[in-house]
Design a binder for these strands. Structure first.
Lengths: 214, 214
DNA sequence: GTCTATATGTTGATAGAC
DNA sequence: GTCTATCAACATATAGAC
């Protein structure tokens, strides 16, 4: 992703290091001040550069956000792959992945808000940057299918609505945690502590088939 | 809240109308462009005023956000009071209030994000502006107590954790709906359509006592 | 690749004429 | 209460010297 094409590999490497350093700072700004606080000037300031110099690395602020979006996707994918490495396909994977997703979002609130909400008024990620995100959700969806086939969940869990309900739970826990107790860790958070209870609630609903509405 | 003290009631009235008009515009900006897009200049522009004139009505941009916060609280309280006017105390009230809250948040995404998240980096509502919000949640909490006493929910539902779980569901539906299908109505939204299913899931969990975790 | 200099726009906020 | 004028910052972005 961050590999540039150049005649000299040494120069390209150095260039890539600068690009990565710029994104490191941008990420830090997001975490500290929110996603909307990222500016070309502030990144340059932290790099010990003048703002115009940064335009040699990125064509625009929009491009920086796009690179951050891609980086966020890569990070969360790595984090979840590592977390679910030894998980069984199906329900076990879904539980582990859900916990990992919430844990990561709390560790990286800036990147998470960029990936999962629209915190920057003018910015929409490019199709390329967005594609891995879709792939990730399809993987989740697949594990719902597996869980239903294995009988760990009811057949109705193999549906887009069930998938949406699971994302509702995860995003709800994250947003409540970050809004009401920012800075708290996954273990200490009064909302993130409810993760397993929420998952049980979901499993309960999609194990015993639906009852009537009052 | 918006009543000013003045010797002449006529002038005070006119002043209050201007204040309200300014907040109307600010609200519209929030809905159209996001909570972070509210600026003194843009409000003045829409009022047909110069920016400095607005400082006769508000001491700072921060004060405008605070007034918007108060207004949001009043609006959502009115909306929910109207919606729950004929509801039975307890579970019926909670169901109706949850639907109303989600419906209102989708209709007023700008105000809702101001009330329930922290979309503006520098802004924290004043204690006075925040107080009604706390009162509202205490009312919800009260209805959980009533529902448990009536036997509509299990005793464990009379807890802060159950309250948090309910807010997780509501905020999760809102945030997913607004992020993934902005502009859709409550009826058409692929996430807001899950409201009743989510409530059923919650009720199911807090009716049948908790089972073991896998 | 870095810089200075600059163009152009925006913001929040104040002073003071009318 | 409105305006003009102004300030000090800040932003994105470009041109061109070195």
């Amino acid at each position: 992703m961050a590999t540039s094409i150049s005649r000299s590999p040494r120069i390209a490497e150095r260039r890539d290091r600068t690009v990565e350093a710029a994104l490191d700072h941008a990420e830090a700004i997001m975490t500290e001040e929110g996603a909307g606080a990222v500016t070309v000037s502030e990144i340059a300031r932290r790099l010990g550069m003048r703002a115009p110099s940064l335009y040699k690395y990125f064509p625009s602020l929009h491009a920086i956000y796009d690179a951050l979006f891609s980086r966020g996707n890569a990070q969360v994918a790595n984090y979840m792959n590592a977390a679910t490495a030894t998980s069984e396909p199906g329900l076990d994977h879904l539980r582990t992945a859900s916990r990992a997703m919430i844990r990561w979002s709390i560790q990286e609130p800036g990147l998470a808000s960029l990936l999962f909400t629209r915190p920057v008024p003018g910015f929409k990620p490019s199709a390329e940057a967005f594609a891995p995100s879709q792939a990730m959700w399809q993987l989740w969806r697949h594990h719902l299918t597996v869980a239903a086939q294995r009988g760990e969940l009811a057949p109705s869990a193999d549906s887009d609505d069930a998938m949406r309900m699971l994302t509702v739970l995860i995003s709800g826990i994250c947003s409540q945690q970050l809004a009401n107790q920012p800075g708290a860790s996954y273990e200490d958070g009064i909302f993130s502590r409810l993760t397993d209870e929420g998952l049980d609630m979901f499993v309960h609903r999609y194990t015993h088939e639906k009852k009537g509405t009052s």
